[in-house]
């Protein structure tokens, strides 16, 4: 196992390098110019734009830029945002707490909904409960978050006037007041995202549990006189978790990049909205930093998932 881990980590380094090279190339080749807004402004002389491009090293050939980026990254320098003219790590750190709180809670909510609902649906397949859960899951999934978010705003903010729909990262209140305000402004973004994630997750949990629930050893466990509940939790769920773990491992890195649309709708200052503005403004250093951290997380969590598989099902071997 430890040699396996060691090997995997060793392999991760060249693959991350490869990923970063490809990312960099895609970003460099993708159309757009960080100073495009200046180009449409007749009062900004063209020389200014050219000077800016030169100052930020945009006119150098691609390999030179990549090596420069890599060297800086190795030294722990994340780069310098074209749009904000500050260090990228400062920008990301400002956004990190909000992102982790909102997106993390949403993922948690999704999981907390999906597990019991999915399991119960699978234990009683095609029951009334299952039918209702299925229908809701598909309603939730057919409606994109831009739509459900708007429905939430219309209902809770505009008609009922219960909740604010603009998320403020620095509330002026303190103490309990702060917690209450934070709670009020977070409900909608967390629910919209959590319900959307939960909807698809429910389906996967249900399907995975359904796969194992009719297997022999489950019947054996039942025959042993174990209670239904114990059987399900101890035998069924553990064996059904493999696809669920895979999905969770796929989604955790997503916490870092956030959820662009939900953040946009509720003005949550998360990394997702930072990424999308950076992409729209062609702010390459910011995009590169976020995406690269994201790919590291992807690689890491896929490794974690592989290890968890071995724990869930000891027969899985690593070669």
């Amino acid at each position: 196992m430890s040699t396996y881990l060691f090997r995997r980590t060793l392999i991760a380094i060249p693959s991350l390098l490869g990923i970063s090279l490809i990312l960099f190339t895609v970003l460099a080749l993708a159309p757009g110019d960080p100073f495009e807004e200046l180009a449409t402004n007749p009062n900004v002389p063209a020389e200014v734009r050219l000077n800016l491009r030169a100052q930020f090293g945009l006119d150098d050939p691609l390999p030179v830029r990549y090596v420069r980026w890599l060297a800086a990254m190795l030294k722990g320098e994340w780069g310098f945002s074209f749009a904000s003219r500050i260090n990228v790590d400062t920008l990301i750190l400002q956004r990190l707490p909000t992102t982790i709180f909102v997106i993390g809670s949403a993922q948690l909510l999704g999981l907390l909904l999906a597990l019991p609902i999915g399991i119960y649906s699978a234990v009683r397949p095609y029951s009334v409960f299952d039918q209702i859960a299925t229908t809701f899951a598909y309603v939730g999934f057919s409606l994109p978050t831009f739509f459900t978010g708007l429905v939430f705003i219309l209902v809770f903010s505009i008609y009922l006037e219960w909740l604010p729909f603009i998320f403020r990262s620095d509330l002026s209140a303190t103490g309990l007041q702060w917690a209450w305000e934070m709670f009020r402004q977070s409900i909608m973004p967390i629910s919209v995202l959590g319900l959307f994630q939960g909807a698809s997750m429910t389906r996967f949990v249900r399907s995975a549990v359904l796969e194992v629930i009719k297997l022999d050893y489950i019947n054996t466990a039942r025959a042993k006189g174990l209670s239904e509940w114990v059987t399900i939790v101890k035998h069924v769920v553990r064996n059904a978790l493999i696809p669920v773990v895979t999905l969770v491992a796929l989604q955790i890195p997503g916490i870092f990049t956030g959820a662009v649309i939900t953040e946009q709708i509720f003005r949550v200052p998360g990394i997702g909205s930072l990424l999308i503005t950076a992409i729209l403004a062609n702010d390459t250093p910011v995009i590169m930093a976020i995406v690269f951290v994201f790919s590291c997380l992807v690689v890491l969590f896929n490794l974690v998932a592989d290890i968890v598989y071995g724990w869930l099902d000891p027969r899985i071997t690593y070669r």
Binding site: P31, G32, D33, F35, E36, E37, L38, A39, T40, R49, L280, A281, N282
Partner: peptide, 8 residues
């Protein structure tokens, strides 16, 4: 828009 108005 980000492509249309770019100076690329």
């Amino acid at each position: 828009a980000s492509v249309y108005f770019s100076s690329d």
